[in-house]
Nucleic acid binder design. Structure first.
Lengths: 159, 159
DNA sequence: ACCGCTTGGATGACATGTCAACAACTGGAC
DNA sequence: GTCCAGTTGTTGACATGTCATCCAAGCGGT
């Protein structure tokens, strides 16, 4: 480990900007979502993933993988959402260990009521502030970073 | 509130990419930081802000504002860091209510030991994967979003 | 000096996330 | 069939973050 290569001015600006945006965007989106729809961002993400799925149901591990959550976290969170009536659990017929999370009618109503406002907020605070070129650049750059990190997670070779 | 304007394909790609990058980058940077330096990201941010400050000390509220943390969160976190010997608290002579957080020698050693590796990780997983144009674009776009949201936070008028 | 209003920070109760153990089950080797 | 390593999901203890509340101190008008 030789001399560290610090960030130059532009890199530093990008990195600090990213972290600050991350924090502010999170705070604001979470605030509006809670106020308008009574959902936290994790709630929203769970409901959203479930609603995009053919049978409105997913195996726990499948959902955990998609969301990049630990099984433990998902299990705890689902217990809470279940108590609020947003989802239910069902046994898996083909695997005695497994279980499904199922979107309940109330869960469907909740996500349908929340989605338009949430998308509008994402537009208002992020997307609509960017040029078309910036949107594309953001898409390209984030996916590149994600691909690298996903590879690392699943043990793919370097470079 | 008329028909919602959903995200088109490119916007959706950017938004999903952003959220996924956010999560993966967080996990990986936090993992490496903890492994290599025994610090959490919040720890690192506190120490980093303190070390960049002239007297290695800041008023609690000043630090909380910089980090966009609630005072409560900061207070709790500092108590924990204080117990680990990374920072100390001092009374403020000019304001009897106030207090300073001060970087301790151990805190300074910790941040100096952690910084090179952390910066290297930021490079490896993000910065060095981007072209110079992308770095600039990221800097520009994030700062634009931040400016808007900061305005909102402090109650500045809407355009 | 007195009063009420604000501010800085601490605190306790509670919500959420993490980590390590665990039980139930699967599926392949033999 | 029996064994056993690996997988699935749950659980409890603990770390962390949030929210409402509190206290002490400042500030400003009278």
């Amino acid at each position: 480990m030789g001399e560290p290569r610090w960030l130059d001015e532009r890199e530093d600006r990008a990195w600090r900007g990213y972290r600050r945006m991350r924090r502010l965007l999170d705070l604001e989106l979470a605030r509006e979502l809670m106020q308008d729809a009574g959902l936290s961002e994790p709630d929203y993400d769970v409901l959203s993933d479930l609603s995009e799925t053919p049978d409105q149901r997913l195996r726990l591990s499948e959902l955990a993988d998609r969301m990049l959550w630990s099984r433990s976290r998902l299990s705890h969170h689902l217990t809470r959402m279940q108590q609020r009536g947003l989802v239910t659990r069902e046994e898996c017929p083909s695997d005695g260990r497994g279980a499904f999370v199922v979107l309940s009618p109330a869960g469907r109503r909740a996500i349908e009521a929340a989605a338009p406002g949430h998308v509008a907020a994402v537009r208002r605070h992020l997307i609509d502030l960017l040029t078309a070129e910036e949107v594309d650049a953001l898409g390209a750059l984030t996916h590149r970073v994600v691909d690298r990190l996903s590879g690392r997670r699943t043990g793919r070779a370097e470079v």
